[in-house]
């Protein structure tokens, strides 16, 4: 695993980043605090998809679990009046249950089935939540009371806390047997089998963790914005953003998720102001270019230098 010296360095740098993040609200206005809050939301979401991506599986319907989390929180709040923090855990649990069902069926198969199923799952939930009026509120949406009387700072610090909690979880996961197994599975499932790693089991576990975190963040988002319509949580744009952030930063690394989410969320805000329709075009371009030229993301460039680049114009087809 990691060397002792390295661990110290990593922990130290995260403490510094945490310190800086915690003190930014002193210097910036409320618009930027809101922006920073959504950056932390996306950092957590991106780290969560990274845990899954490590096994070589890519979910293009992360919005499904984000939305399930948000709606679980809203429903429990509305009908049972539970405390928000109980809701967070429930939201994570419900998301995981859905992930277990979906994963048990599709993660046995290698390749693209899982991606297709996740995309289809999110789109289906979007339609259902738009239509179901009695419980979910239909297209007119659903509302919950705000956290902390809607004060901006406590909300900011909660998102900061959640993002760093996710970060810590991700470090533990990637240094645990799950992380090791994931890497082996990604490289070769046959090797994994031969050393006693059950690929399906670990893929499902990684998916559950990923869905749990995404669900919790969904619940937090619900309380942060206090009112949602289905497209805000189940919409394809969420899944797209998470994927682009992950691949841009470096899909297999926790640090990459942090860099990717922070830089692209800010870019998205900028594009949103410039382009009325279709500001997501930035994500499309980034997905394409990142896959072609830097499959290991910004982190790959930082750690490997020029080797982090893929030269797509070299050797077009190798032997199969």
């Amino acid at each position: 695993m990691m060397e002792r010296n390295n661990i110290k360095k990593i922990i130290l740098s995260w403490i510094i980043i945490f310190g800086i993040s915690a003190s930014i609200p002193l210097f910036i206005g409320s618009y930027y605090i809101h922006l920073a809050t959504s950056v932390f939301i996306y950092i957590a979401l991106t780290i969560a998809i990274g845990i899954l991506a490590k096994t070589g599986q890519v979910s293009i319907g992360q919005a499904a679990f984000f939305g399930i989390g948000a709606y679980t929180a809203a429903i429990f709040c509305k009908y049972f009046g539970s405390s928000p923090f109980v809701e967070f855990v429930l939201a994570g649990a419900v998301s995981s249950i859905f992930a277990l069902g979906l994963g048990a069926i599709t993660l046995r198969l290698k390749g693209i089935y899982f991606s297709i199923a996740t995309l289809s799952f999110a789109e289906t939930l979007l339609v259902i939540s738009n239509m179901e009026r009695k419980i979910l509120g239909g297209a007119t949406g659903i509302a919950v009371p705000p956290l902390f009387d809607n004060k901006i700072l406590p909300n900011y610090y909660l998102s900061l806390f959640l993002a760093f909690l996710t970060l810590i979880i991700a470090y533990f996961v990637s240094n645990s047997k799950i992380g090791f197994a994931s890497t082996v599975i990604r490289h070769d499932e046959r090797v994994a089998n031969s050393i006693g790693i059950n690929p399906t089991k670990y893929k499902i576990v990684a998916f559950l963790i990923s869905a749990f975190i995404t669900g919790v963040i969904g619940a937090y988002f619900m309380h942060y914005v206090t009112f949602i319509v289905p497209d805000e949580v189940f919409g394809l744009h969420i899944s797209v953003a998470i994927l682009a952030m992950a691949i841009f930063g470096g899909i297999y690394s926790v640090e990459g998720a942090f860099i990717g989410a922070a830089s692209l969320k800010i870019l998205e805000e900028y594009l949103r102001l410039k382009i009325r329709y279709g500001h997501m075009i930035g994500y499309g371009i980034i997905l394409i270019l990142a896959v072609l030229f830097m499959p290991n993301g910004v982190i790959g460039l930082l750690t490997k230098g020029r080797k982090g680049f893929r030269n797509p114009f070299k050797s077009i087809i190798k032997r199969s």
């Binding site: 293009i60 991606s115 994927l243 075009i281 994500y283 997905l287 394409i288």
Partner: peptide, 10 residues
């Protein structure tokens, strides 16, 4: 998956 999906978004 990510590449073709990127084209879809584009």
């Amino acid at each position: 998956v990510l590449l073709t999906f990127g084209f879809s978004v584009l």
